[in-house]
Design a protein around this nucleic acid. Structure first.
Length: 488
RNA sequence: GGCGCUAUCGUCUAACGGUUAGGACGGAGCCCUCUCAAGGCUUAAAUACGGGUUCGAUUCCCGUUAGCGCUACCA
């Protein structure tokens, strides 16, 4: 049974690329009846923050993604150091006493890549031990076996056979001069200890993997399987970064923007993976069912956003698709916080349940309830242009007669879809106007604008009293309006 | 600079070496219709470039170009 892990370092917020990595790991685990491990890679004490950790939990909670085991690397430093000692004892690592500043200097001049310092690598063990015992600080470096080995190789499940000349791998650090393990050391030591079977992570680690293979070998253990994921990039081709691209890189932006977790997970899955059968809208169960690492592709995927429109159109479409098919009760429930944020009074679940069927084909994000359902909650309609009341091929006078008639009809009509339809259509034919010419003034009178949900349902939800009141107001506005009558 | 990875419509992607290069989003148009949506139909739009291999290359190989990644005592 596979054991996979998602290992974020708490140095930011939950990045959408990280979220996708979690999802792919999770999908792989669920598909194969495996174990999903969340491991916080916080070996760099200076850069970790609690808020970042909170944001990771927040994001995962929203996405409703759970894990089976949880660890923090900072609780396991002893194990990592022990592993490093083991590697040193086996002669696969050496102490580098070069002061930090010197090294930086050395790197800056010449464009030849820094690989190692022969004096340090070849230092006799006795001298090394003596200087260490004397308390001289050092960084522990991996002794890359360049003399007796030409290359390091591994097979990536996504990218295929990988090989790199040992001559091109530098003697990387295992332990910092303060004794703390580096990412490479901690990560591999933990992968061994946690019996990780598959490492599924971003492609930015593909070249690091050669180092990791070396560490696994030095630790005397079989390397896990590796599957690297293509990166998510911005439309400008750059890696997504908060500094450069703003809040679009944080999953909470999508949550606050009114996305359903399901849509967002679905969207992320489509970036860099395909079920190969043209399926696009998938439930979580279907995703689990369909997901395989073989379906992951190799080229970076662009998240399509602009400054004006921070959300990828495909994500928006997927969300609209999900909103339309969500059971009304669920939709109403999810709408509550957004309705409240919009300042709607009386927007409780019951009320929203009445409105949901009228707007669900008209909102693409939950947040859009703010602009599509406002008139259901307004005590008084915000002012609108009287001319809006004028129907197609009509004038203010026609609007007036239509509204008078409507007012009359609505006083006694049965407030149901069919009742209203019959009554209002009859009214239109009485006035010898087209149905649309009758409906449009009413719509504007009760909604305050031309673009709105279907009229009869809207009237039912609004109720007789409100409808009548708003029509009366519209009539009043018409009276105040300058006598037009010059439309011919 | 060195090393590695990648390259199909604007975007996400499909295509055992043989397809009129498919689908989706977005765009355009039409239909439906009480407005707006939703839905239906139609349409424009791609194999980076150059060489091979092959009867035949989107597909395999080489080169060029471009993009990305790694090259830290970050992860």
């Amino acid at each position: 049974m596979p054991r996979v892990r998602f290992a974020p370092s708490p140095t930011g917020y939950l990045h959408i690329g990280s979220a996708r990595t979690f999802i792919f790991n999770w999908l792989y685990a669920r598909h194969n009846n495996g174990t999903m491990i969340l491991r916080i890679d916080d070996t760099d004490i200076e850069r970790n923050t609690q808020t970042s950790l909170d944001s990771i939990f927040d994001g995962l909670k929203w996405l409703d993604l759970a894990w089976d085991e949880f660890y923090r690397q900072s609780d396991r430093l002893d194990l990592h150091k022990q592993a490093a000692e083991e590697i040193l004892a086996r002669g696969a690592a050496y102490r580098d006493f070069t002061p930090m500043s010197t090294e930086a200097e050395d790197k800056s001049h010449g464009d030849a890549p820094w690989l190692f310092f022969p004096e340090m690598r070849n230092m006799p063990r006795e001298e090394s031990d003596r200087r260490a015992a004397a308390g001289e600080p050092f960084v522990l470096r991996f002794r890359v076996p360049r003399e007796n080995r030409a290359s390091v190789e591994f097979k990536d499940i996504v990218y295929g056979e990988q090989s790199k000349a040992t001559a091109d791998i530098e003697d990387f650090a295992l332990l910092r001069s303060n004794g703390q393990p580096t990412y490479h050391m901690a990560s591999c030591a933990d992968d061994v200890a946690m019996k990780i079977s598959h490492v599924i992570r971003g492609q930015d680690h593909l070249t690091n993997t050669f180092k990791h293979v070396l560490i696994f070998e030095a630790l005397g253990s079989e390397p896990p399987h590796f599957a690297h994921l293509p990166l998510l990039i911005a439309p400008d081709g750059a890696k997504l970064s908060k500094r450069k691209h703003g809040p679009v890189v944080s999953v909470t932006t999508y949550r606050d923007g009114g996305f359903l977790a399901q849509s967002y997970v679905n969207f992320l899955c489509l970036l860099g993976w395909s079920p190969k059968n043209d399926r696009e809208v998938m439930t979580r169960e279907e995703l689990v069912e369909l997901f395989t690492l073989e379906g992951v592709n190799r080229s970076n995927a662009t998240v399509n956003f602009t400054e004006e429109d921070p959300f990828d159109p495909k994500a928006v479409w997927l969300n609209a698709e999900n909103i339309r098919t969500l059971p009304l009760e669920d939709l109403a429930k999810q709408l509550v916080p957004f309705a409240q944020a919009a300042g709607f009074v009386g927007a409780d679940e019951a009320r929203l349940l009445q409105i949901a069927p009228l707007i669900r084909e008209r909102i693409r994000t939950l947040r859009e309830i703010a602009t599509t359902a406002d008139f259901f909650f307004a005590e008084e309609l915000p002012p609108y242009d009287v001319n809006e009341l004028i129907p197609q091929k009509g004038d203010l006078a026609m609007a007036g007669t239509a509204l008078h008639k409507a007012h009359q009809i609505l006083q006694s009509a049965e407030f149901s879809h069919d009742g209203l339809e019959a009554a209002l259509k009859a009214g239109a034919s009485d006035l010898k106007v087209k149905a649309g010419q009758m409906f449009q003034p009413i719509r504007v009178a009760v909604c305050g604008r031309k673009v709105a949900p279907p009229l009869f349902e809207t009237l039912v939800v609004l109720g007789r009293e409100t409808a009548l009141h708003r029509i009366t107001q519209a009539l009043a506005m018409l009276q105040m309006a300058p006598p037009a009558g010059n439309e011919s």
